[in-house]
Structure formats: structure tokens, C-alpha cells
Design a protein around this nucleic acid. Structure first.
Length: 448
DNA sequence: AATGCCCACAACCGCAAGGAA
DNA sequence: GTTCCTTGCGGTTGTGGGCAT
């Protein structure tokens, strides 16, 4: 398509802009509006190329640009967005309307990158940390702790957004001792608050389970919601996280402080159509650690693109459940019996993220398979014992594989239920409308 | 005072997408 | 379908100021 650069014309001025040039440019654009950058310099009496004029206007002269020091809140937003979006400066800038992408990029490169690197180093959890923690808590010494998700916690120190996310989870587990205690603490808070003032959703499909708020159920409810229809999923995730994990600091749904769940990304769809969001209890404390952690998870999951779901039966079920998209209640009932959750990140580059659900009741084992393109092969994997999967995770000892948290309940059941989520194009999913695409949602299948 | 280094910021450059001709 | 133009984006470079030696 060869095209001559617009800025290599002889005689055109380069470098810093003078006040006089700024005035000429501003005056012209004020009178004639933006656009037509190629012909603008000549019309405006400037010896600059059009591209230079456009940059000068958009990054410096345009009205409404906020300049100067970044506030702590702005920096926090940038860091959180960057963790999800990477170097998508324009996308990040859209969440800080008064800041330009160039300014944000410069600020990141000069300051924030260093801060994040230092923080990340501190927050990364190592295998030694895990072993110490496991030893300290006596995990594996009795029947109760044998089930702890911490037992097989492996964390990989690696770059990449998924690893960062997983390490965040691991760090949180490290801080709390175990995910069970972490969530139990929050459930206690939640329940005490709900008893007082919080109005629960009345018409939800995935969070109105009559089952108690056990950690497993909470996690399963999250996972269930991840597979809700496109229009509801993000709002439902928000609602679950807000109600169950920050219960002690809830406020009314009109409070917009919960916007951080979307990592600052505009998300109007759930406001419009999600019954969850209508009744959601919103978090009133911004940037609290647990919320931030879970927001990261929610955002990550919500960025999944082209996700398919397959529901099949297990060897313990006489008949596999065939669930239709409009029977979410059924699925919610089924999945509420699952007892654990684990995850493996197999391949950062292809954004694969596997989750293993381990049932606590043999009678209710069944298989969930999401995003599997080759169902036959995936089915074989799903039928493997989860212990085997864990062993593979341990043996591989590769930076490309990480086991986040898993419950070791292999002694209490045979086989496993396996849910696999494939994020097909995480980086391209820069629009919430396109992020959660369940086009072939609940495509029923039977396993051999 | 002179020099060199580092940092922050502005500006530039190359590339790609989208649309018009 | 091809070519060209416009625009936007992200990486890189240039430049000036501050600071240490």
C-alpha cells in the first residue's frame, strides 16, 4: 500500500511548538473544527505536517485536557486497568477522559511501571511461601484440613496478565491462610449485614439458591454466573461479589462506587438488562483489597470471548442433565452441589484458563465443559481423575502451568467434574458488549 | 563553574485499520 | 478489487531541566 510519510517534506518544521504556532493552530481549529489534518497546516499558515498538528492539538491544545500531577486515584485506576488491558493506552485513557493516552503512557513508563514492578515483586507468592504456610497451618494432617484448597497450591512467578491475576489470588490466599477462611470471614460479615438491612434480589436466576453460603457454594455461584447469558453475566458477577464478599460495607444500589468491578470500563448493559444489577448491593469502600482482587477475577472472566458451554453427565448419574439456556434455575440447582474449585492456566499465550469443579456429593457429579473446540479430546481429559491432573501440574513444573487452588478430595469421590474456559481473544475484547459472547451457550452434549 | 547523568515530557515515526475514490 | 488518504495507536526518540560529582 506504499504511502509516502506525511512528515518528510522538506522545509517543514519539527520539534517543540512555539506559542505563536499554538495560537495559529488553536485559532484555526476553533473556527473550522477538527479534521482535514493534511491540508490544515497550509490553511492555518503553519510550516508543520498535518500529523504534527493533530498530535499537538489532541495531546496539548485541545480544551478540557487535564494536565499536571496525577492523583493517587488516577494512578490506581491506571495500574488496575493496565493489569487487565496491558499497553492499550487509548482504552485506558477513555476511562480518564481528561487525560490523554500519551500522557498516561509517559506517566506509566516513567513512574507507574516501576511502582507496579516493585509491588508485584513483593506480592508474588513463591513455592516456599506456600510450603511454609501449609506447614504452619498443618494442612493435610487431619480430615478437615485434608480438604483445604491450599494443599496443592502451586504458584508460578511469571510475567503476563493471567499469571498476575492468578498470583493475586494466591497472594490473597497467602494473606488469609486459606480460601475457606477468607470467604468464611466474608460470609459471616455478609450474613450479619443481610439480616439487618440488605434486600436480596427477587428474580435472579443464579444467586437465589436456598443452599447455605458455604465457600464452595459462593465460588460455584460465581462460576455459574459466569455462564449466564451475555446481558446478565457481568452484572450478576458484580452482584454476587458485592453481596457476599463485602457485606459489611454495603450500601444502596444507586451508589456508583462499585464501578470498579468493571475495572473502570463502561458497562451499561447490566444496568439496562440485568435483574441482578437492579437489586445489587454495591460496595461503598473503593479499592478495598478483596474487592479489587475479585474485581480482577470478574473482569478477567468477563473478557472471555466466544465461550461455549457444554453440560454433560458423569459416571454417577443415570442420565446426564441437558440444560437449556432458558433453564438457568436448573443449572443453578445442579451446580450448587459442587464442592470445590481449582484452576490451571495452561497457556498464557493462548489465554487458556481451566477450572476444575470437584463435587462434594457423588450423586451430583456431572461435567461442565466450557469453550472446548474439540469436545472428544476434552471429554477424555474431563474424565481423568483430578488427582492425575494435579500430578501433571506438579510434574510439569513449567512456567506455563499454574495450579491456583484446588481441593484435595480425591478420597471421597471417584472421577471429577471439569470445567474448562478458553479465552480466545482476550486482548481484542476491549468492548464489554463483545466481551462475553455466549453465542452457543448451553449447547447440550453427552459424554461417553 | 563545568560536566555528566537521570528523569519527565513532548514530539516523532512507523504501522495498521477503515473508508472513499 | 485496488489504490490512496485519513486517522488512530503504540513504541521510540529528542530535549530540557534538575541534580550530583
Amino acid at each position: 500500500m506504499g504511502r509516502t510519510p506525511c512528515c518528510n517534506v522538506q522545509g517543514l518544521k519539527k520539534g517543540a511548538w512555539t506559542t505563536e504556532e499554538d495560537q495559529k493552530l488553536s485559532a484555526y481549529i476553533t473556527q473550522h473544527g477538527e479534521g482535514g489534518w493534511r491540508s490544515l497546516p497550509e490553511k492555518a499558515g503553519l510550516s508543520r505536517c498535518g500529523k504534527s498538528c493533530r498530535l499537538r492539538w489532541t495531546n496539548y491544545l485541545r480544551p478540557g485536557i487535564k494536565r499536571g500531577e496525577f492523583t493517587n486515584e488516577e494512578e490506581e485506576i491506571i495500574m488496575r486497568l493496565h493489569a487487565v488491558l496491558g499497553n492499550k493506552w487509548s482504552a485506558i485513557a477513555k476511562q480518564l477522559p481528561m487525560r490523554t493516552d500519551n500522557e498516561i503512557k509517559n506517566h506509566w513508563n516513567t513512574r507507574l511501571k516501576r511502582i507496579v514492578a516493585e509491588k508485584g515483586k513483593d506480592n508474588l507468592i513463591t513455592r516456599a511461601d506456600i510450603e511454609n504456610l501449609v506447614a504452619k497451618n498443618g494442612i493435610g494432617n487431619n480430615a478437615e484440613t485434608e480438604k483445604s484448597p491450599m494443599k496443592n497450591l502451586n504458584v508460578v512467578e511469571s510475567k503476563g496478565s493471567t499469571f498476575k491475576l492468578l498470583n493475586d489470588v494466591a497472594s490473597k490466599l497467602k494473606a488469609s491462610g486459606s480460601i475457606v477462611s477468607l470467604i468464611n470471614q466474608q460470609v459471616v460479615k455478609c450474613n450479619s449485614t443481610e439480616a439487618n438491612s440488605v434486600s436480596s434480589p427477587t428474580n435472579t436466576t443464579t444467586t437465589t439458591s436456598t443452599t447455605a453460603n458455604t465457600p464452595a457454594n459462593l465460588l460455584n455461584r460465581v462460576a455459574t454466573t459466569l455462564n449466564s447469558p451475555k446481558s446478565n453475566s457481568l452484572g450478576a458477577i458484580k452482584a454476587i461479589f458485592s453481596r457476599t464478599l463485602e457485606g459489611s460495607t454495603v450500601s444502596g444500589s444507586s451508589d456508583n462506587s462499585f464501578s470498579e468491578v468493571g475495572m473502570g470500563i463502561e458497562d451499561t448493559s447490566d444496568e439496562r438488562s440485568s435483574p441482578e444489577s437492579e437489586n445489587a448491593v454495591h460496595v461503598s469502600i473503593p479499592f478495598s483489597s478483596s474487592t479489587r482482587l475479585l474485581n480482577k477475577m470478574a473482569s478477567k472472566f468477563a473478557l472471555m470471548n466466544h465461550v461455549q458451554a457444554v453440560v454433560g453427565g458423569s459416571t454417577h448419574m443415570s442420565k446426564p442433565p441437558v440444560l437449556e439456556p432458558n433453564h438457568l434455575d436448573d443449572w443453578s440447582q445442579e451446580i450448587s452441589h459442587l464442592g470445590g474449585i481449582s484452576g490451571t492456566c495452561k497457556d498464557e499465550t493462548s489465554n487458556q484458563f481451566d477450572m476444575v469443579f470437584e463435587p462434594d456429593h457423588q450423586d451430583h457429579e456431572f461435567l461442565l465443559e466450557v469453550g472446548c473446540e474439540d469436545r472428544k479430546d476434552k471429554g477424555k481429559v474431563c474424565n481423568e481423575d483430578s488427582e492425575l491432573i494435579r500430578n501433571l501440574s506438579r510434574e510439569t513444573d513449567s512456567n506455563e502451568q499454574v495450579l491456583v487452588f484446588t481441593s484435595n478430595s480425591s478420597s471421597s469421590y471417584e472421577g471429577s467434574s471439569h470445567i474448562e474456559v478458553v479465552v480466545s481473544d482476550l486482548e481484542a475484547a476491549d468492548n464489554w458488549e463483545d466481551c462475553v459472547n455466549f453465542d452457543e451457550f448451553f449447547d447440550a452434549a453427552t459424554l461417553e
